[in-house]
Amino acid sequence: MPFVEIYLRKGKTPGFRKAVSAAVHESMREVFQIPEDDLFHVVHDMEPDDILQAPTFAGVERSVDSVFIRMTFNHRPPAQKAALFEAIADRVTSATGMRREDVLMTVLETAAENWWVQGRIIDPETGFDTRMSPEAVRAGRVG
C-alpha cells in the first residue's frame, strides 16, 4: 500500500493534479506491480512562498513550477527505486509538459508491519498484500 504525497504550488488545474497522480500510480503499477486499486495519494496545494528551493541544485536550474513527490512504501532494492524514479519522471513530463528538472522525488521506506487498512490481507511470510503474485514477491517487485 504505497502512500504518495504530491506538493505543488497553488494554481495548478485539477487536470494537472490528476495527471501527476496518475503518472505516479501507473509507474508504481509497472515497477512494483501493485494492484490497480492500491491508490492512496494526497495532493497538497501550497502557497507559492511555502515551497522553498534553491534555483540551482547540482548544477541544474529548477523553476517555480517544481513538483515534489514523497512516496512511502516497504523496503525495495536500490535498482527498483531507480527504475521507479525514471518511470515517474518520464510519465509526469509526458503527461504534463513539465520539465524533467522540475520533478523532485523522495522515498520513505517503512516496515510492512507499519501499514494497516481494513480489508487488506497481508501474507505473514512475505509481508506483502496477498493479491500480489508469488513471483513478483520473490523478485522484490511488489508493494
Rank of each mutant, 00 (worst) to 15 (best):
M98T: 14
M98R: 05
A58S: 12
E30Y: 12
L84I: 10
D90G: 04
A95S: 09
W115M: 05
M46D: 10
V64H: 14
M105C: 00
L52M: 14
L52V: 06
V31T: 08
T110C: 06
T72D: 00
L52Q: 03
V117F: 13
M98I: 09
M105E: 03
R120S: 13
E86M: 04
V43M: 06
T93P: 05
M105W: 02
F32A: 02
Q53V: 04
E109W: 00
R100Y: 07
I121G: 03
T93A: 07
V42P: 03
Q53A: 14
R62C: 02
M28P: 00
E86V: 11
D102P: 01
D102I: 09
S63K: 02
P77T: 09
I122A: 00
M28S: 13
W115G: 00
V117A: 13
E30V: 10
R29N: 03
E109R: 00
T72C: 00
V92Q: 06
S63M: 10
Q80D: 09
V107H: 00
D65E: 10
R76K: 07
Q80G: 06
E113L: 14
V42E: 08
A54K: 14
Q80H: 01
P78V: 02
E113V: 13
D50C: 15
S63D: 00
I51K: 09
R120F: 13
F68Y: 09
L39W: 07
W115T: 05
D45F: 02
A89H: 12
F57A: 11
D50W: 15
S63R: 10
T56A: 05
W115D: 04
V60G: 11
E101P: 14
M28D: 01
N114T: 01
I34M: 14
N114Q: 03
M28Q: 12
H75C: 03
I34F: 02
L84Q: 04
R76E: 02
I51N: 03
G97L: 01
F68E: 03
W116P: 06
F32S: 06
T110V: 13
A89N: 09
F68D: 12
A87Q: 07
I69E: 01
E101C: 11
P35M: 07
K81Y: 07
F57L: 10
I34P: 04
A79D: 10
M46S: 13
R70Q: 14
D50N: 14
D37F: 12
D45M: 06
T56D: 05
E30C: 10
V42H: 07
V103W: 08
E36W: 04
Q33K: 12
E113R: 14
D49R: 11
Q33V: 12
V92P: 01
L108D: 08
F68G: 15
A83Q: 09
E113W: 08
E61Q: 15
F40V: 12
H41R: 03
P78F: 00
D102Q: 03
A79I: 05
V64M: 14
T106P: 07
A58M: 09
R29K: 15
D102Y: 05
F68K: 10
R91P: 01
I121H: 15
T106C: 14
E36P: 05
I69K: 00
L52H: 11
A79E: 15
R70H: 11
V103R: 10
G97A: 00
